[in-house]
Design a protein around this nucleic acid. Sequence first.
DNA 1: CGACGGGACGC
DNA 2: CGACGGGACGC
Length: 518
Amino acid sequence: MASPGERDRENDKDRDREMHSGYRGYVNLHEPPNSRLFLVVSRSTTERELREMFDKFGEIQDILSVKDKFTKEAKGVAYVKYGKSSQACRAMEELNGKSLSDGKPMKVLIAQSRSSSCGRDVEDEDLTRIFVMIPKSFTEEDLKSNFQEFGDIEYCRIQRDKVSGEGKGYGYVRYMRPSQAALAIENSDRRFRAILAEPKYRLNPNPQGDWHQPPESMHANFGYDPCFQGVPPIFKNMGPKTLPLPHFDDFGCHPGPPLSNLTSDDSLDFSRWLSVTMDPCITREQLTALFGLIPGLDFCDAQKDVINSCRLGYVRYNNPASAIYAKEKLNQFEYPPGSPMMIHFAKDVEAATSGENPLRLMALQLVTAQVMAEVSSHFTDRAQPGRGQMVQPQMMQSTQQTRHANGDFETSFTTARLPPKQPLAPMNTPMKERLFVVCSSSAPPPPEALTNAFCRFGNLIEIYMLPSKSYGYAKYADESSAKAAIEALHGQEVCGVRLKVLPADPPKEEARKRKHTV
DNA sequence: CGACGGGACGC
DNA sequence: CGACGGGACGC
């Protein structure tokens, strides 16, 4: 076995050689992991033939048929590099064993780097299990409902404390096929931090022989967020869902309503928007049907909130009166029974739409008795489209909902003038600039709201708040993006919380990470 | 005023 | 059995 030094040097040589590639430019053959295939083919197989077979699974970044250095004779092996591991895995699953033009079967494996020895074939179990960080309150069902959209799950496992039964904050998901695990790693919410699980027997125990345990603070990113930990009991154990594929933008943000660039003059316009926190089984069509009972609906969308196991709807009316009326009548409406919807305005107009204020009174006047009767009849007569039985809405339910513990989803509203959303930089991108973010209130905005705001300057790697603190950090992969964030967001409000945004001091010099007795 | 998160499975 | 080509960029 090579010494660590030799290994490093060997890896460097690999990288030097392999960064150089064909006319498409530089391709790092090891990035992302498991995105390159090793093929055993016939000596007569051409690159062209391989290209035709393999480009169905993704854009081929690099292809090579290995030839003898001197005789130029094909050796019957080849490499195919894709941009994504899921593409390579799919190609392996579909093409391994398939016949070539001469009738001989080909082998397709995940390629290994020169300095590594073992190959991974389509049967390799190491490619089908992922390791994920989750809230302690997660059940196996929660795990399943969040990861089944990526493929056929063999099992979900959650580690728990044996005495208290409390989750330890992580779990495992085993898929049937490598490409499914790869899709989960590529596309699941970043806060899960999904990675391929190391096979148990290959994990290194530390010198003391006990297993490394995650520190308590590991759960911080989930734990501080009331939205994350406080999944209402009614949302749990809802059983298998038949949700349409959730529609996230490229970086796991809820697209949300078009907002930003809010000025005080926009409050009237804002009062047309409602956000709805509701049961995950409700589809966009059902939401549209329900809110469409009130005239003036001109926009309706529903997003799955992966982390919260609930569903987030956005509704807009063409006039404030309809919105006010909809909130008045449908807030706390149990749909399905046992799952009250929670409806909110933008914070900015909450005060302006309650009590004796003229706008509200006007709205309630404008809505005719006829409309009200129509709404009521729908609620009582129509069969509930999803599941269970439709119930009478609690028409007179008070709308004075206090700042509820879990459902504050008016996450996208800000006083800042913001450019459009941009994709996040991959988690492993080197950080160029770190910002220190302080919130005026001890309860910071939900993470998705912060991500929504801070992603808009590009190259945001991550923003997080420290648990039970009013501050946190935003990491950027680019200085000018970070600068633009300061420019646009310092002193502004997100979700009613005023932010300070400034360059962070370098991280505290922690005494070297080492075992305290060594 | 407001300064620091980081991953593993009882056999 | 079946494991690696060609050669840019900017200092």
